[in-house]
Computed example of a mutant assay.
Amino acid sequence: MSHYRKLLGVLFILLLLPTTLSGCGFKDIDKRIFVVSVGVDPAKNSDKKFLVTLKLAIPNVQEVSNEFLIIAEEGDTIAEAVRIMKAKVDKELDFSHAKLIVYNEKILKPEIEKNLYYWFIRRRDFQEMSWVAIGKPSAQEVLKLKPKSERLPSNSLFLILGKDGSESAYVIAEFLFDFKKRFSEKGLDPLLPIIEVKKNIFEIDKVGLLDKKGLKLQLSPKETMILNFFVNEEPKTALKIENGEQSFVIDIQGVKTNYKLMTDSLKQPYIKVDIKLQGRIEEALFDVSNKNLRQYEKMANTFTKKQVRDVLVKLQKSKVDPLGFGLRYRSRHFEKDDWETWERLYPEIKFKVNADVQIKDTGLVE
């Protein structure tokens, strides 16, 4: 009898299963349209906060296609704008392939920063491995651009940020999960690459630095490259050593950086910074010789030391800490007032930079 009851129970569950599936929100792939990029700008035509733009890939079963559809809507929240946009398309919006979020620099202000990432983090179909960036002149203009070399919608940006295509020390890619962590972690501030639309191409050679409230400053391409030496130890670059008529360019092939906080029991606390570069001379404005490599290295050490120190001091004066000096300090000090102590130390702390540039050869056959 008990066996009979179990069998009836199984049959009852099977009868209910189709009803359960029909209400779960599952859509077949032919009933979905895939979002590849999201842009967030300030609203233009209303008193709403945001203008949210979605770039939708249009599939072509016959061949590879870079055709896309742009839809946009204004709302006080990103969620509100997306819900309204669902009425503009005939298929379900699918964010599982959305790999890029672009922000307009004008919305990177105090009081609204949580809105910038909270919705994306909460979405179950949104990848936290998506990249985040600043778009100029606007996020929407970045999404609308269709480079001639692009074979799939937004793929040119994916190749650059993911380094599957071009590799550059001027590009500092930032992931959504790390962007959120930097907003919430004391002693580590957010940073975002800047994507500019110029004459139908993308230009990504600068980075924007933020504190916990909003955008503070933008670094030049050269400053971005130096920051990338520390963030990613990125060697794919050429470093120009400027010394009047004896200027030359080093093809960098290896980078190693390190720093140590010297703050305990010292009258004048300082941060000891070491940077080691390896490469060969790629171009010069004068006749070079392998016999004079040590002389060229000395010139490169002096120049690099100054450049690195200037960037660190600029970050310090702007009260931003993208390298995590404060986080390193917190990891070694555990008293309640240690964070307040660091906030007093950082604006006044000194940087002692040691540069070791090793030039293998001049790239010439003598």
Results as ranks from 00 to 15, higher is better:
L323A: 11
F95S: 04
F68K: 12
G279Y: 04
A355W: 12
E74R: 03
P235E: 05
D321P: 03
L239T: 10
D30C: 02
P221F: 13
F325K: 01
Q127P: 00
Q278I: 12
V197T: 13
E340M: 07
H3I: 15
V353Y: 05
D337T: 09
Y170K: 15
D310K: 14
S149G: 08
Q253L: 10
I107E: 02
F175V: 05
W342A: 09
N290R: 02
F229N: 15
I58T: 10
E340K: 15
E223I: 11
I33C: 03
F351L: 07
E73V: 03
K186P: 14
T263C: 05
L15F: 10
E366D: 12
K99W: 11
R332K: 13
T19Y: 05
G254N: 14
I70M: 09
Q246I: 04
F229W: 15
I160L: 14
K236H: 15
Q127Y: 01
Q62W: 09
Q307H: 08
W339Q: 10
S154D: 13
S220G: 05
L210G: 01
T302H: 07
V273P: 03
E297H: 02
G279R: 07
G324W: 12
K213Y: 13
E335Q: 13
L51Q: 07
K317F: 03
L312F: 14
L157I: 13
L219I: 13
N258C: 06
D310P: 00
M299F: 13
L17G: 00
I359A: 05
L100Q: 04
H97A: 07
N301L: 10
K213C: 01
S318R: 03
V288N: 05
P269D: 03
P137G: 05
I33M: 09
G135S: 06
L239G: 06
E73L: 01
T53W: 03
Y270M: 02
S318K: 11
I201V: 12
A133Y: 01
N104K: 01
L108V: 08
K319N: 15
N45R: 06
D211G: 01
K222R: 14
Q268W: 11
N228L: 09
K198I: 15
K146I: 00
K240M: 12
N354Q: 12
K206N: 00
T20D: 00
G39K: 03
H3K: 14
F120L: 11
D47V: 00
P322G: 08
G363E: 05
S156F: 09
V52N: 00
I359R: 04
E141W: 03
L21A: 12
G165S: 14
M299H: 05
D164C: 01
A355R: 06
G214A: 09
W119Y: 15
D251K: 11
K148T: 12
A355N: 07
L11R: 04
I226H: 11
H97C: 03
V207Y: 03
S289H: 11
D189V: 02
L176D: 06
L217M: 15
F12D: 07
V288C: 07
W339E: 08
Q358W: 08
T20M: 12
K144M: 13
K236I: 15
K298A: 14
F26T: 08
F158M: 14
D338I: 07
K146L: 01
L210V: 02
F12S: 15
